[in-house]
């Protein structure tokens, strides 16, 4: 039984209420390998390890069937805003 991108998306949405979430299927369609970018207020005041633990914990059920999960970004809304602004200024320059 595979896990779908939609399933990962909806579990993370309901557990971490992200303001930005991107789930990328990196398996080439077999549904067992994902990359995730997530921005949530729940990351506030937490180190990267604790943030990743939150994501892994939210997906505990799915992790049994996921072969690889890459957490590309786990940011607070404030960090996300700053990152986007610096990217925008780079493009503008």
């Amino acid at each position: 039984m595979g896990v779908t991108k939609e399933q990962v998306h909806s579990t993370l949405t309901s557990k971490l209420s992200p303001i930005h979430l991107e789930v990328i299927d990196t398996s080439g369609g077999c549904g067992a390998s994902f990359a995730v970018e997530i921005v949530s207020e729940q990351f506030e005041g937490k180190r990267l390890l604790e943030r990743h633990r939150l994501v892994n914990g939210a997906l505990a059920e799915e992790m049994k069937d996921i072969h690889a999960l890459s957490i590309k970004k786990a940011l607070t809304p404030e960090q996300w805003k700053q990152q986007q602004e610096s990217e925008n200024s780079k493009t503008a320059a």
Binding site: L48, L49, H52, R53, A60, A68, K72
Partner: peptide
Amino acid sequence: SSWPTFPQLYIEGEFFGGCDI
């Protein structure tokens, strides 16, 4: 380590993180 995947890196006896970290 309460960590579901590998690799797992330990520094000075303490869990540091997986690949992304």
